[in-house]
């Protein structure tokens, strides 16, 4: 069993974790303009913030610049899956 090691960018390959930035929760769709104030507040501010494996946006900001979706354990910081985010 090896260490989880550096973060693996789908395009750039294994890189030091310092090159990546957390990009927030992958939001579902952006609520319509007519949505309620509470719905808009939920979209803006409420987060899953799961303890354990969480789905997160990451950006390879000191690299290819791609937005990525990672399944990462928020206690051990081990990334189980990472892939390109799509529109």
């Amino acid at each position: 069993m090896t260490n989880p090691g550096p973060m693996i960018c789908p395009f750039c390959g294994p890189r030091d974790a310092g090159e990546f930035r957390y990009g927030g929760d992958p939001k579902a769709a952006r609520p319509a303009f007519g949505s309620s104030d509470a719905e808009w507040a939920g979209y803006l501010y409420v987060r899953e913030n799961a303890r354990g494996v969480a789905k997160e946006y990451w950006v390879h900001s000191q690299g290819c610049g791609q937005w990525l979706i990672a399944e990462r354990d928020t206690v051990t910081h081990v990334i189980q899956r990472i892939s390109e985010a799509t529109a």
Binding site: G23, P26, R30, Y57, V59, S61, G65, Q66, W67, A85, T86, A87
Partner: peptide, 14 residues
């Protein structure tokens, strides 16, 4: 640039 790329890649398409 970071904000423009966020919307480009997650909403408009690369």
């Amino acid at each position: 640039v970071a904000s423009a790329e966020e919307w480009r890649q997650t909403r408009f398409g690369r």
